[in-house]
Design a protein around this nucleic acid. Structure first.
Lengths: 107, 107
DNA sequence: TTGACGTGATACCATTTGGTGTCATATTTA
DNA sequence: TAAATATGACACCAAATGGTATCACGTCAA
C-alpha cells in the first residue's frame, strides 16, 4: 500500500527510445531480440532500456523457455498520471476526466 | 500549428527539482530569487532548471524591472498528455487495476 | 552430446547532466 | 553618483547516461 516511487517512472519515460519501446509493447509482447531488430542499436543497449523501464514499473517480464517476454504494465503509469492530476485546475480536458473515471468520481 | 516537440517536455519533467518548481509555480508566479530561497542549491543551478523548463515549454517568463517573473504554462503539458492518451484504450481495459494502483492498494 | 540460440552481466567509453564559483550587466535606491 | 539588488552567462567538475564489445550461462534441437 506504499505508493510507487515517482522518479523511476518519470525517468523511464524521459528517453525517446524507451517511449518507442513502450509503444511497441502496447501493441504486443516482445522479446529483447524482437525489440532489438527494430532499433539501430545493440541488444545490450536495448537491455539497459528495458531495465530502466522495469525499474520504473512500466513493464513486466516473464520467462518462457530461453526467451524472456516483455509486457507493458499499464499500472506503472499511475505515478505519472497521479502527479499530472495535481494540475487539473489548469486544464479541463481529457486528463481530468480520465482521473475522475479512475477515482470513480462524478465528472 | 506545428505540434510542439515532445522530448524537451518529457526531459523537463524527468528531474525531481524541476517537478518541484512546477508545483511551486502552480501556486504562484515566482522570481528566480524566490525559488532559490526554497532550495538548497545556488541560483545558477535553479537558473539551469528554469532554462530546461522553458525549453520544454512548461513555463513562461516576463520581465518586470530588474525582476524576471516565472509562470507556469499549462499548455506546455499538452505533448505529454497527448502521448499518454495513446494508452487510453489500454487503460480502459484495465481501469480497475489502474484505480488500485493509484490508490496504492495491492492488485 | 554438441552446437546454435536467446539472454544476462560486465568493463569500458564519450557525452550529457546537475551542480558550483565567478564575473558581467541592468535596475533600484540611498 | 554610488551602492545594493536581481539576474544572466561562463568555465569548470563529478556523476549519471546511453552506447559498444565481450564473455558467461541456460535452453533447444540435431
Amino acid at each position: 500500500m506504499t505508493a510507487p516511487p515517482i522518479q523511476p517512472c518519470f525517468r523511464a519515460l524521459a528517453d525517446p527510445t524507451r517511449r518507442d519501446i513502450v509503444m511497441m509493447l502496447a501493441r504486443s509482447d516482445m522479446t529483447i531480440g524482437q525489440l532489438t531488430d527494430r532499433f539501430d542499436m545493440t541488444r545490450a543497449a536495448v537491455k539497459k532500456h528495458l531495465t530502466v523501464l522495469s525499474d520504473g514499473g512500466l513493464i513486466t517480464v516473464r520467462t518462457r523457455g530461453r526467451e524472456r517476454i516483455n509486457s507493458l504494465n499499464p499500472e506503472g503509469f499511475a505515478p505519472v498520471i497521479n502527479w499530472l492530476s495535481h494540475f487539473d485546475q489548469f486544464w479541463d480536458d481529457r486528463l481530468a476526466s480520465l482521473k475522475s473515471a479512475i477515482e470513480g468520481n462524478e465528472p
